[in-house]
Design a protein around this nucleic acid. Structure first.
Lengths: 230, 230
DNA sequence: TCCTCATGTATATACATGAGGAAGA
DNA sequence: CTTCCTCATGTATATACATGAGGG
């Protein structure tokens, strides 16, 4: 029966994992739709009555442990994409995850709290931005772009490109962005940041880090072509 | 001859790296001595006139890139130890590091700012806790233990112990703590946290991640009998 | 339009705490 | 009654993505 691994147990400790997973995903989308950060939600929850949770708790309750997704599942990407309208229809995320970053029991417990809070926030939002601002006590981050979260698979591919060429041409970047289904600008910035990091990690007198030798990240980056595909 | 690698370049861009390194280390010690967190320093700096820096900036300017220390150098550990009076005299940190996490130029630039601020904070502290509290705008964290920072080397050893046995006996923990020169309690807590992490990462139906058998005692010392197995 | 550099902000992760329980003995 | 456990959760720090100035 191991041959059918995609049917993950859907109930643990009497908690419906599927439901929790869906909720977590939906919650993230709703949060982002309102333009709120985890920190803001955490603070607002603390301010409001009821149990309060830190940013870290929101994170724990919202994150989907990527270790338990197959390469193709790439949920983060998909969530992001669906928000920017670039949803890739071939990229469904079969419910094969195993676990959230918290225990199911714990998830079950705060689910209603988050649900209630979010419903309220959304109601405020509908009745005018002013109300939302008041509810959460501070500006929703209007201007700043939402922080992109690359999937481990995307990162592997990006890094393997980087090792071959730290300065891809405009053309190449467009291609990479398309292949990975991320915004081109986001990919460009990723390379900028990656180069910065490289610089910090490179000893002063040393030659430009031999990408062949010392710290090659993990060998497994090879199957870029088959891996992500859409 | 490369056989003398410990003479790292001590000047880059006209900046004395040695001096910066020393400063960074000393700054951290001074900060900890006052019982302040990076966040507090960041906020206090923002509040005071002059350029302001976030927690993240303080971190960047204070961290010593561990990649560039030899295993024996273990600066974090040594700093911690010197503060708790458990300094290990054999553990000197030869100045062989290469670089901080920022560019030397940048370090040079804020050094005086940090220096000035710290001097002021220390002066306040000497003239009474009240003054310091006022200066930084909030309580120095009195009660909470300083967060321990394990060196990569220590973590490797801890993890290798963990893989052999996730529940070391009291005896074993004492030995590990002594060998690594960390507080025993800190080591104990590390194992607790490590086990929690393991649990979160382990899929529900799955067998306990193949670290030898479940709770096999890995019958080590003779006096293990006195220990609470299971 | 794209780069680098300095630096910010958001998120993830590692260490710490505390409640409640089991067991030695 | 001390010692160590697990569990939930907090806080401090590190890191990854974003921004903006200045340059060509």
């Amino acid at each position: 029966l191991v041959s059918n691994p995609q049917t993950a147990p859907s109930e643990v400790d009497g908690v419906n994992l599927e439901e929790i997973r869906e909720f977590a995903k939906a919650f993230k989308i709703r949060r982002l739709s309102l333009g709120l950060t985890q920190t803001q939600v955490g603070q607002a929850l603390s301010a409001a009555e009821g149990p309060a949770y830190s940013q870290s708790a929101i994170c724990r309750h919202t994150i989907l442990r990527s270790h338990f997704f197959l390469p193709q599942e790439a949920q983060e990407n998909t969530i992001g994409s669906s928000l920017t309208g670039k949803l890739n229809p071939g990229l469904l995320y079969p419910a094969r995850f195993e676990k959230l970053d918290i225990t199911p029991k714990s998830a079950q417990k705060i689910k209603p709290v988050l649900e209630r809070w979010m419903a309220e926030a959304e109601a405020r939002h509908r009745s005018g931005m002013q109300n939302l601002t008041e509810f959460i006590g501070s500006e929703p981050s209007k201007k700043r772009k939402r922080r992109t979260s690359f999937t481990p698979q995307a990162l592997e591919i990006l890094n393997s490109h980087f090792e071959k060429n730290t300065h891809p041409s405009g053309q190449e970047m467009t291609e990479i962005a398309e292949k990975l289904n991320y915004d081109r600008e986001v990919v460009r910035v990723w390379f900028c940041n990656r180069r910065q990091k490289e610089k910090r990690m490179t000893p002063p007198g040393e030659p430009p880090p031999t990408h062949e030798g010392p710290y090659s990240h993990s060998g497994s980056a090879g199957d870029a072509s088959s891996c992500h595909d859409l």
